[in-house]
């Protein structure tokens, strides 16, 4: 479930250990989105969603990784990214997905906002075992 890759190349893995890494994640997603031929608005949405989720990985998950690459399904192409950490997990997913709810002093828009910006959004988490969020934006 955390591996949507069906395209012909392996996803790249990016570390998310310090706030400077967020810049690299955004650059990587931008490069993929351009190669995939996403529209300018869709590129912007995908990069922004990735920035929100990578910051969550850092702030709430205590760091982790982003795997990102091109994906394809039903003759569509898209950009996929998986944000994984081995942090405390999310005890109440429904609450965490609510606009404005935050446990970390942010605006509480990260998860819910990122979900609105992408086409596919899957969240897997267990208390004490970490969190994995998979997002995909398909080219139209």
């Amino acid at each position: 479930m955390t591996a949507p890759w069906t395209a012909d190349e392996e996803p790249q893995v990016y570390a998310v250990e310090r706030s400077g890494d967020l810049v690299h994640v955004r650059q990587a997603i931008r490069a993929l989105a351009q190669r995939c031929g996403l529209s300018l608005v869709d590129q912007t949405k995908m990069i922004t969603a990735a920035s929100e989720l990578a910051r969550n990985t850092l702030t709430y998950g205590g760091g982790g990784t982003v795997r990102a690459g091109l994906v394809s399904a039903n003759s569509r192409r898209g950009v996929g990214a998986v944000f994984e950490d081995t942090g405390p997990g999310i005890p109440d997913v429904e609450q965490a997905m609510t606009d404005g709810w935050t446990s970390g002093g942010g605006l509480g828009l990260g998860l819910s906002g990122a979900k609105r910006l992408v086409d596919d959004f899957r969240l897997r988490t267990a208390p004490g075992e970490g969190t994995a969020v998979t997002i995909i934006k398909w080219a139209r």
Binding site: V41, Q43, K45, T48, E52, L109, S112, G113, L117
Partner: peptide, 14 residues
Amino acid sequence: MRPAVAITLVELGL
């Protein structure tokens, strides 16, 4: 602000 940024910000909820 670029148009794509404005669209994204509003959809993000900001």
